[in-house]
Computed example of a mutant assay.
Amino acid sequence: MAVRKLVLDDFFDEEQYTLIGIHCTLEDYRLAYLLNKYLEINLLRKPEDLDFDKGKSVYSIFEWEDSKHLKTWSLVSNICKREEQNKTTYASLFETQEPIIKTYNLIPEYKQVNFFLKIENEYNDSKEKYIVKQILSIPQIVTAYSIDTSQLKSKANLIFS
């Protein structure tokens, strides 16, 4: 009896997407508005933010499904700041709690990036450069650049659904 072996490597390829890091000091809603205006897209705030570790870190997310080109655009914050209580004990009878601000990152390898623009169904190189050029034309943007997703260690954090 012959033994047949099925190789499924081709069926389970990684999802293809373009990832652009954006440095700016804008609020998330303002950046989404400017990206909509300059890129002629329609990012809308999702009803629920990305939640990691049961509320330990929460990241805002805006999304647009382009049905014409079968692409999904997502703008997600990379930085979450939370106020937590720090218990300190001094050489006294009383224990005090001081609030401290802790910073969490969605992608820890890129701590300086404020936002990520993820475009599912990868664009070719020239279209990606055009998108980055359009983002850089926004006066409030400090810098924006493409990120090589094959080098990311925490790419599982970019799965939004």
Rank of each mutant, 00 (worst) to 15 (best):
E98G: 01
L44P: 12
Q85Y: 01
E83Q: 14
S92E: 03
F115R: 05
V3L: 15
Y33V: 15
D9T: 13
N78T: 10
H69C: 11
T25L: 15
D66K: 13
D49W: 02
Y59M: 07
S67L: 14
N36H: 00
A32C: 08
I61A: 04
A32Q: 12
Y145C: 03
K129R: 09
Y110Q: 13
L26M: 15
L43I: 05
E27Q: 13
Y17V: 15
N157F: 05
E15Q: 15
I138T: 00
E83H: 09
D10E: 10
H23G: 10
T25Q: 14
L158I: 06
S150P: 06
Y123E: 06
T18E: 15
N42C: 08
N157K: 12
I141Q: 00
E120R: 07
T103H: 06
I101H: 02
L6D: 12
Q97W: 05
K54N: 14
D66R: 12
A91P: 00
V113A: 06
I20M: 12
E48A: 00
L44G: 14
P99Y: 05
N114Y: 01
Y110H: 06
I100G: 01
M1P: 11
P99A: 01
L8S: 11
L34Y: 04
G55S: 08
L19W: 02
Q112S: 03
S154Y: 07
D10K: 11
M1I: 09
